[in-house]
Amino acid sequence: MVKAEHNTPTAGDITAANPHMRARGVNVYYGGKQAIFSVSVDIGRNEVLAMIGPSGCGKSTFLRCLNRMNDTIPNCRMDGEVTLDGDDIYGGKLDVVELRARVGMVFQKPNPFPKSIYDNVAYGPRLHGLVQGRAQTDEIVQKSLHRTGLWAEVKDDLGKAATGLSGGQQQRLCIARAIAVSPEVILMDEPCSSLDPIATARIEELIDELRRHYAIVIVTHSMQQAARVSQRTAYFHLGRLIEVGPTPEIFTRPQHELTENYLTGRFG
């Protein structure tokens, strides 16, 4: 019976109206153990895709496939196809450096560099040579901090250590750092899991703001958060993508029994 469940193809509609990234038949293996089973899903422009599911269901692993962060894990192997604007990100055409400049990432635990606030935001633009001179850098730092709502709070302390900020500020700084290189897609791996409810609310507002410019994929443990911030929701279970669809539909009329069980709190 379990086996039958596992062979169920993804319920709902995996496609997006205006896809920016596209994953087809993605399998991921850690050594001999398969962690992701044939996941296919689209990531649409200007929309937030939330990925939910119980712990260990593979949602973070799948997220890391989208900017090849899994490359850094020894013994991790993947197959299947992931495209960004039609280009295969695992093919030879797209360099991993370019990919990560176009697909930014925000991690679970705020991880600012132990440098100044300014240097944190300026790191990406300087790294990729997007800015020449102090004036341009100043401008991009200011713009990114404005966009994350951090400017008013830190504008007098740009030279201070980023590690001195509060957890929520640090996470917004990490978002500012990610958007400073003007990526097309932002991946967020449980960005609020280490934050208090007020900081969480700020980040969620920010995500909604950012949606106007970027495609966003967010992994979250909180179903409420998925309901609040996302337009589409994907439910993962034991490495499989069980169901994906517009968020209101998933939450009100889940098609798959597992999705319904999870949403009604029967497990997870």
Partner: peptide, 12 residues
């Protein structure tokens, strides 16, 4: 986390 942050920004 520091390495991930840098790699995630596209640093080699």
């Amino acid at each position: 986390s520091i390495r991930q942050a840098a790699l995630g920004m596209g640093a080699s």
